[in-house]
């Protein structure tokens, strides 16, 4: 069995999950977030207002480092 444990430091924001240790601060996710629910702080992606997040998944689609992804959808919870 392979060790798939993650060295990262993941924070679950409900709709979004962010692994700050993997984030390189390129700013692609924040630039193309349609509702501006996320922004860069100290070169790391951070949630500004989780209520604005529509879970469209564009941040996850375009994050080159897989540091941000959409959590479980509302209807799955």
């Amino acid at each position: 069995m392979k060790n798939k444990s993650i060295k990262g430091n993941e924070v679950d924001h409900g709709k979004l999950i962010i692994n700050a240790d993997w984030c390189k601060g390129c700013g692609i996710c924040t630039a193309f977030c349609p509702t501006k629910a996320i922004e860069l702080k100290n070169e790391k992606v951070t949630v500004v207002d989780i209520d604005k997040c529509t879970q469209c998944g564009l941040c996850e689609l375009r994050c080159p480092d897989y540091a941000i992804y959409v959590g479980r959808k509302k209807n799955e919870q």
């Binding site: 392979k2 060790n3 798939k4 444990s5 993650i6 060295k7 990262g8 993941e10 999950i17 692994n19 240790d21 993997w22 390189k24 601060g25 390129c26 700013g27 692609i28 996850e60 080159p64 480092d65 897989y66 540091a67 992804y69 959409v70």
Partner: peptide, 22 residues
Amino acid sequence: MPSQLVDKYFRAEDLPQIWCPG
């Protein structure tokens, strides 16, 4: 635990990758 996709198809223990930011 990374996203299901990354967990399933990536060698997550080797991430983050070596590529430059962006």
